[in-house]
Design a protein around this nucleic acid. Structure first.
Lengths: 205, 205
DNA sequence: CCATACGTTGACCAATCGGTCAAGAAATTT
DNA sequence: AAATTTCTTGACCGATTGGTCAACGTATGG
């Protein structure tokens, strides 16, 4: 986006170290939030010195913003993959399972996002407005069309999306609570089956 | 609970100031998280000086723990009010609406809780184990009984509770996102109607 | 009205924070 | 292998943090 620097050619070392830093930062930020994370923690987790980290990024906020930018793309991808020409119910269910899978595979990303929204989205608000909102509007129109054609039971498309996000991301964001309450039970399998039932019964015309 | 101090008689002033501090702290903690909140912010918000705050509480963590303790009670109350002798579907739906109402009326408490769980529940874990878990086990047994009697459609009771928490608390915890996507639309009314439909269709035998 | 406990605060402190800098170590180019 | 760019870091800095303390008000009961 705002790439003012020409940034001619990223060295092997640059690429490797930037990746290391971002991975360590994702771990720390998602665990402690923006304010709770410290550069020293990120330095320790990445195996680099603090000044060295500041050599690759302009500062703490720069690292955080970079992470959020990367995150938004991955976050929106599943929504983009909903096929307007597919079978409506199956398309929605595929989206649900995809989101649930992301909660299991990328819990740190989910928590990073949750932290940011919880604090009022101070750094990601522009992305919500310019990236997420148009896509949600578009998807809502698509779903409304499906409903009008009688291919889905009538529900508010936006609240439907909210509930899908809430129920799937819950397993990543509230993992600490889920783990206490589920003890040794297998969580993911049960969740997949439950959510499938939930949205199938809701949406079947 | 762990009231080691005799604490003979709380003065009028003590009660008033402790309340002030806790209210201010709830505002600050829920907005910035534990680490993001500062005693100076809490002092400013409560209208007291920082040393005065330390006169009423042993420290930052003491304030936070006190808030979480108060919160757990309020959090469990609706779950306790599910009537084993009531009509199953209506009891669950009443619980859903009650939780949604709490998200609207006490969003700060919801966000405080979400923050704590997101960080791995470092300070509230004991309460989850000793307070929430037994109650959830009990409720799960109750719901399983209702299902066995054919009064509810068969679903995993624990995942059902997770989805209720997730969908209702979402409107408080992700308010920043919801507000962007809903613009001027009335959020709460639509949410109530949507969730009613969602859980009615899921649970109707 | 005064003694004693309660309440309040400005000034201060050690620790930690994000960030700087100069100087040296490794690569890379010539 | 010399020159030049890239990479790395120990030492340091000002600002902020949670918390302390001595001194000063203020309520209250005898």
């Amino acid at each position: 986006m705002s790439d003012a620097t020409p940034a001619k050619k990223p060295t092997r070392i640059q690429l490797r170290n930037r990746t290391r830093i971002l991975d360590a930062a994702l771990e720390i930020f998602s665990q402690h939030g923006y304010r709770g994370a410290t550069l020293d923690q990120i330095a320790a987790a990445s195996g680099l010195s603090k000044p060295n980290i500041l050599y690759y990024f302009d500062g703490k906020e720069d690292i955080h913003v970079t992470l959020l930018n990367q995150l938004m793309d991955a976050w929106l991808a599943p929504l983009r993959e909903i096929d307007p020409d597919g079978a409506p119910l199956e398309e929605i269910l595929r989206y649900v399972h995809r989101k649930l899978e992301m909660s299991r595979e990328f819990p740190r990303e989910s928590r990073l996002f949750a932290n940011e929204i919880l604090q009022g989205a101070p750094r990601i608000a522009p992305h919500l407005e310019s990236g997420l909102k148009p896509l949600v509007d578009e998807t809502a129109t698509l779903i409304s069309g499906w409903i009008a054609e009688g291919k889905l039971a009538p529900v508010d498309p936006r609240h439907l999306l909210f509930s899908i996000w809430a129920t799937t991301q819950h397993y990543a964001d509230f993992d600490a609570q889920v783990r206490v309450l589920m003890e040794d039970r297998p969580v993911h399998e049960g969740a997949g089956q439950y959510l499938d039932t939930l949205y199938r019964r809701l949406l079947k015309p």
